[in-house]
Design a protein around this nucleic acid. Sequence first.
RNA 1: GGCAAGGUAGCUCAGUUGGUUAGAGCACAACACUCAUAAUGUUGGGGUCGGCGGUUCGAAUCCGCCCCUUGCUACCA
Length: 680
Amino acid sequence: MSRQILVTSALPYANGPLHLGHLLESIQTDIWVRFQKQRGNDCIYLCADDAHGTAIMLTAEKLGITPEEQIARVKAEHERDLAGFLIRFDNYHSTHSPECKHYSEEIYRRLDANGHIERKDVTQLFDPEKQLFLADRYIKGTCPKCKADDQYGDNCEACGATYTPAELINPRSAISGATPIEKSSTHFFFKLGDFENLLRQWTSSDALQPQIANKLREWLDAGLHSWDISRDAPYFGFEIPGAPGKFFYVWLDAPIGYMASCANWCEANGRDFNEFWGVDSKAELYHFIGKDIINFHGLFWPAMLDSAGFRQPTAIYAHGFLTVNGKKMSKSRGTFIKAETYLEHLPAEYLRYYFAAKLSGAVDDIDLNLEDFINRVNSDLVGKLVNIASRSAKFVHKGNAGKLASKQHNIELWKRVTGASDAIAELYEQREYSKAVREIMALADATNEYFDSCEPWKLAKSEDTAGQAADVASQCIDIFRVLMTYLTPVLPELAVQAEAFLNCKLTWQGEFSPLQDHAIEPFKAMMNRVDADKVAAMVAASGDSSTAAAPAAPVKAKAKKAAKDKDTGIADTIAYPDFAKIDLRVAEIIAAEAVEGADKLLRLTLSLGEYGERQVFAGIKTAYTAEQLVGKLTVMVANLEARKMRFGLSEGMVLAAGPGDQEIWLLSPDSGAKAGMKIQ
RNA sequence: GGCAAGGUAGCUCAGUUGGUUAGAGCACAACACUCAUAAUGUUGGGGUCGGCGGUUCGAAUCCGCCCCUUGCUACCA
């Protein structure tokens, strides 16, 4: 009985090109979908571009085109790249579509009617010239710390400091250059807290991977906050019904894009939308996503669907992030590889195979180790798999006039290979592709061993035994057919070539029966080895010269605890230059006050004499009162990266000894020291 | 600091409910073979399974503490 399955992968944002991280998800999903289709299930794969938001609006403006033109342009690029990687969608739609507008409004109306929408005022920085509320990244100014100009609203690229937009010197709108003002506006919120019971139930169902369920429960335990779902005009998106000038925030209509894509597909294919999305739908619904968006799919989405009277997802399958050579993708290392760049240098199937060889059903990150990639593809695909056909074909053509033998030569091996069918299918079903690939390659190894042990090249030399050589080769080619069938979801193009060579279709439904007395074509190379130079060229092409030339990226102070010497309990020895990096200064506490809402923190204003003043939050309230501290001299780390805290920006650190609580003793210099003096 | 997921051969990874000398592929070495895209086969070297302690007749596997990596988070700076 054929299953009815709807599958989605996350909607790429229509404001930039796809990179290999996107492809990890597309490939994972596509393999699963191709597998389901190959097995005869009614499986539909839908996606769309996420086409709304301020960023898209501004990009379009910058390019001097309309947002509609911009998203059409990006969508064409996305579709081209995805097709390049053999991702086969049943429909690739857009959130900027009549269907999406319809369902966004419909769902919103139902949520509102059910009392799950509230309105609250929010104060934000506002560009008075452009008449636009500004997110942090759209505010620029002079870094309050290093005075570097032209820095963004939340952190400084020159010195790495973090701060709030209000702290920037000469803040200005990155869009118009105007000085932003604070302005209040009414926002619409989705009251997620109303759905706690539903979500508790949902997180304990088996729709979620255990790691994801844990994470969601953590959020549930921390308390659910209402979610801001509106943005003020001007905004590129859908206006909220009955609220002129208010638009749905991009994340509100993004998941609804799944429905929109489905509705659009149903219309074109004469299918019933409710068959998939109605509360009583018998279809299975799966969302493949990255672990970065599990809150939207694991909390907001089920709540929205429930309240709006739609069915719940059958399961959400989250995958980890992609790293390259063990590290985050980075432009300066040349490992921020765009889909387009990859395809300019290498065939898609190499990457499909490599990802398949590493993907599991878990949420773990996947590493693209480029050297391993080269070795793995060459060894597995060319050396083992295709080699079976390559080394066998000749004997069939010479020994049996190009026809496969009429009998099995190695029934045990045949049974072993075909007997693995169910197990391999189950591994695909569970998204345990790496295990499936391992199993398939082990069978390929066994086939090469069998071929070697029979030595058909020797048998072929004598006319008496030439027929035996053909029998062995026929057996191997028939097994190659089965192995290729198993790998068709991963390697669809290679499968097509194999079909041409074998002169038959690769089908994977029911039992395999031997292919006998069957004419095959002469063998032609199906796949070339990975050229290491091409990989190097791809990395070179991915390098961003502008970042490479830029000053070293600010070191994100990862307070690595110095390893302690086992005997003395003292940290490992460091060289003087390491110590010299720390700029310790005498500081005068000119003001101190308790921080409202904080139990342990004092807000200190420190004077560094001619170097100005600093605000530092110190967790010493348990040992000192504000009054005790004012006027005192102390020691501070003056060049510590600033840290954005809940209560404000902390621009340094005062030094104190002791284990904590009441036992904290602030360091202070002998009298005579002046604020700002360097300590060395 | 808290929570989560990890830490197994040079590299990429398996190791089911604790059970005999810890596995695979790649890489490396030797040998074999020459049908095949310098492919394949056989053999071998290489790991105190992050560290310490505990439970057990027995632990990579269970428990505790610690260290490291990644992510999220935090009155932490």
